[in-house]
Computed example of a mutant assay.
Amino acid sequence: MLEENVHCEVELIGETVREVECAGEFPDVPLAVITGGKPPPQWLMSPAAAGARRAHQQALARLSSQGRQVIAQSSGHFPQLSEPSLVLAELERLLEFRTDRARASSPEPGFGRWP
């Protein structure tokens, strides 16, 4: 399964780049970039490439004034597999923020709207 996914990612790089180029400015929304804290093996990725990847993920988190980077200390490339509780906690934090914001802008109690 992993090998199949890697091939799909590689095959679709051009399409992904085109989609990103057409997307326009990133909105100022709550954002979490979850980064694996374990460096990849050097045979897989050079230290320079790993540093560039970390810098790119920091830049992603700065796309929104509400963004933050979360380091999954016990994870490599797949924190959703190695630290699912951390990923779920971050998703819950984002949902709570959204729910609190909807309540604050609701015209009547119990009737939230998505701003």
Rank of each mutant, 00 (worst) to 15 (best):
A50K: 00
A50F: 05
A50S: 13
G51E: 14
G51S: 13
G51N: 08
A52R: 14
A52Y: 11
A52N: 09
A52F: 09
A52Q: 14
A52I: 04
R53I: 03
R53T: 06
H56I: 00
Q58Y: 10
Q58D: 09
Q58W: 02
Q58E: 11
A59Q: 09
A59G: 01
L60H: 06
L60K: 11
L60G: 02
A61C: 02
A61D: 03
A61E: 05
A61G: 02
L63M: 13
L63C: 08
S65E: 12
Q66H: 15
Q66K: 15
Q66A: 05
Q66P: 01
Q66M: 15
R68L: 00
Q69R: 14
Q69L: 15
Q69I: 12
V70D: 00
V70S: 02
I71F: 06
A72E: 04
A72P: 06
A72C: 09
Q73K: 15
Q73T: 12
Q73S: 12
Q73F: 04
S74T: 02
S74K: 15
S74I: 01
S74Y: 05
S75N: 07
G76C: 12
F78C: 14
F78W: 15
P79E: 10
Q80C: 07
Q80E: 13
L81Q: 05
S82Y: 04
S82C: 02
S82Q: 09
E83F: 08
E83G: 03
E83P: 06
E83S: 15
E83V: 01
P84D: 06
P84G: 14
P84S: 07
S85G: 01
S85V: 11
S85N: 13
L86N: 13
V87I: 15
L88R: 13
L88S: 06
L88M: 11
A89E: 04
A89Q: 05
